[in-house]
Design a protein around this nucleic acid. Structure first.
Lengths: 71, 71
DNA sequence: ACAATATATTAGAAATACATAACAGAAATA
DNA sequence: TATTTCTGTTATGTATTTCTAATATATTGT
C-alpha cells in the first residue's frame, strides 16, 4: 500500500514484558503461534481486528503498539 | 470471540463532515473509490495500514474511527 | 428536462493475512 | 547428557482485502 512507509510494532516487547510465550499470546488473541512469530519478525502486517485484539490484550492503544515510520 | 464481535466505523460520518466525496477521500488515503464505499457499507474491514491512513487523514485516533462492538 | 457528478452494485483478478503442518536449532532445566 | 520447551524456517492452502472495470441509479445544478 504505502511504499515509503513501514510498520513497526512492539509485540515482542510487550509479550516478553508479560513473560508470555508466542504460543500463550497466540491463544490469548486467537491466532496461530506462527502468526505471532511472523508479526514480531515483521513478515506481515496484521488486520485491524488482530491489531485490536493485541492492543486490548496488552492494555495499550493501537497507536502505542504499532507505528508507521519512514522507510 | 471474533464471531460475536463486529466492527463499526465513522468513515462516512467524518467524510461528510469534511464534505469530501468518496473519490476525494480515496485519493487522500491512496485506495480506490470502491474500497471507501465498501468500508462505509461494512462490506469489509480494513487493513491496519488503511485504518491508520484514514485516522491520520481525519486527524482522529484509530479507536475513535473504528469500534468493536457486541453483535 | 438535461447534463454532470456522486453513489451503488457486481464480478473477476491480484495481493496478502492467516492457517496448517513438518522439521530444525536454541535455550532452559533436570 | 538427555529431555523438554521455545523459537525459527519453509511450504502450501484458504480466506479476505483491495484493485479494476463496467454499468446502474441517485443527486445536484443549469
Amino acid at each position: 500500500m504505502k511504499n515509503r512507509m513501514r510498520m513497526v510494532n512492539k509485540v515482542r516487547l510487550y509479550r516478553t514484558y508479560y513473560q508470555w510465550t508466542q504460543q500463550e499470546l497466540a491463544e490469548r488473541v486467537g491466532v496461530r503461534r506462527e502468526t505471532i512469530l511472523f508479526l514480531e519478525k515483521g513478515k506481515y502486517n496484521p488486520s485491524l481486528y488482530l491489531a485490536w485484539e493485541l492492543a486490548r490484550t496488552f492494555r495499550v492503544k493501537i497507536e502505542d503498539l504499532f507505528d508507521l515510520i519512514e522507510r
